[in-house]
Each structure stands twice: as structure tokens, then as C-alpha cells.
Amino acid sequence: MVTDGETWWNKVDGKEGKSCASCHNDAATTMKGVGARYPKWDEASKKPINIELQINKCRTEQMGAEPFEFDKGGQIGLTAYIKHQSLGMPMGIDLKAGEMQKWWDMGKETYYTRFGQLNLSCANCHEDLMGKMIRADHLSQGQTNGFPTYRLKDGNNSIHNRFRGCIRDTRAAQPKAFSDELMALEVYVAWRGTGLSVETPSVRQ
């Protein structure tokens, strides 16, 4: 996943004839700390932006390339490669920037809302019951510091794919990846991991 991302980092794509490295040079220096600070406030869109959407913004605005579709192309690999440059650094997002606090509030509301036919909130499993076994699955704390992660049953996983998978398992309708609802949830869940080390790429069951 990470080496795949490194290949994408150096790959020229789009009308401008640029790669990520053309502007950002050595990721080990320029991307250090980025993975610990995202999602962050994006003044242009007046919304939080995560690494995946920042990559797409660079591709469309700087490289003249097509944005990656959700989980396609180099999206997971590049996100993992960029976040990996912060390995071991403590997670800490800035809630004072722009309207981040409002998005945090929205995400918290979602986290504690029960969804679906099975009537479950994120908190039911990942706060109240973390550590327990639901059949063969060990209920995690639902942290994002190791994402994108390698899941033993289905390979490389993005944060939004896992959000959608969890919501599907409550038998609720799934919000779209990078929708306002899931961006708010990413902000809130990243905040819950404040102080945890970035572990990307981690391995999960």
C-alpha cells in the first residue's frame, strides 16, 4: 500500500506534466506531520478537507489531472504514503480553525445516534463495548490513526470505506464517501484519537 503510494507520488499525470514530487519534493520532509493534522479546515470550500480530498484538489488544480474516484486509482496508496510520513507522531487536529468546531459537533451527534434496523450507534460498540467479541470480531475503539489500514478479510481499507461498512452492518442506508455526514464523523473520530501515534499502515482483523 505504502510503496504503491510512493510510485504514485513520483508519477507524472495530467496536462501540467507534474507529479506530486514536482511541487512537494521529498515527502519524508514535506509531508511529515500532515497525517497527524488532517482533517483540517479548507477555507476555499468552507469545509473540512481530508488527505484524500486534498490529493484530488492537487490533481485537479495543480496537475490538470482527473480526481481519483473513491478508493480508486492511487487514492488509498497515496493517502497511506502521505500519512506514513507522520509515523509515530501524535494525532492532533485543529478545531479552532474556521468552523471546525461546528463539524465536530455534527460528527459527535452522528457518533451517538442509533442507526438502522439493528438500532446501533458508533458508541454502542466502539465506546461502550470495545474489547468485547462480536462473534469472531474484536470490537475496536474505532480509531483512525492507523488508516488506511490492511484488513485481513478484504485488504486495503480507507476510513470512509470502513465508516460505510459499519453503517451497512447496522442495516442503515449508507451515506456517500466524503459526504458532509461522513466528513463530520471523520473530524470527530480523529479528535477522539488525539495523542495516539499515527500508525499507518496498520493491520486490522
Binding site: 442507526f115 434496523q117 439493528l118 438500532n119 461502550d128 442506508a173
Partner: peptide
């Protein structure tokens, strides 16, 4: 945390195929 197995008092945004079931 236990779901109700024969009730329509359920969570928000139930997926289409499970609405009313």
C-alpha cells in the same frame, strides 16, 4: 445495545429493503 427483533421501533435511516420489516 441489544436490537429489538420484532419491533418497528428502530434506528434512523433504515436501509430501503428493511423499512417496515
Amino acid at each position: 445495545v441489544m436490537p429489538g427483533f420484532y419491533t418497528l421501533d428502530v434506528g434512523k435511516n433504515v436501509r430501503e429493503e428493511s423499512v417496515g420489516k
